[in-house]
């Protein structure tokens, strides 16, 4: 099997597709999180000023959530890549030999 046939095989294409599908889903979540936050800052200040605790505003809570959320996305990506992507890569590498 030539390199060309290999990369046009269904198995390989499935790998590429799953990689980018997952990446773009994660990117979309990141966008919703970050721009959701930024647009709230720009457009809905009353919501951010809401007190959710003693001196803790909704804005402060969201600040923490966006940072932790962004970090969690990287963790989820690595867990996915280790569990799913790497296994497919190993299988494909065996086929290549």
């Amino acid at each position: 099997m030539t390199a060309r046939d290999f990369v046009s095989s269904d198995k390989f294409n499935e790998l590429v597709r799953s990689r980018w599908t997952f990446s773009f889903i994660m990117l979309a979540i990141l966008f919703v999180m970050y721009y959701g936050y930024i647009f709230l800052v720009a457009l809905n200040r009353e919501f951010l000023a809401k007190m959710v605790g003693n001196n803790i505003t909704m804005g402060t809570v969201l600040f923490v959530l966006v940072i932790i959320g962004a970090w969690l996305l990287t963790v989820v990506y690595v867990l996915w890549a280790n569990a799913s992507y790497d296994k497919k890569v190993e299988a494909l590498k065996k086929d290549l030999q």
């Binding site: 994660m26 990117l27 990141l30 966006v66 962004a70 996305l73 990287t74």
Partner: peptide, 9 residues
């Protein structure tokens, strides 16, 4: 901070 996840994906 938010560039980092994008860099990863």
């Amino acid at each position: 901070l938010v560039g980092w996840p994008a860099l990863m994906f």
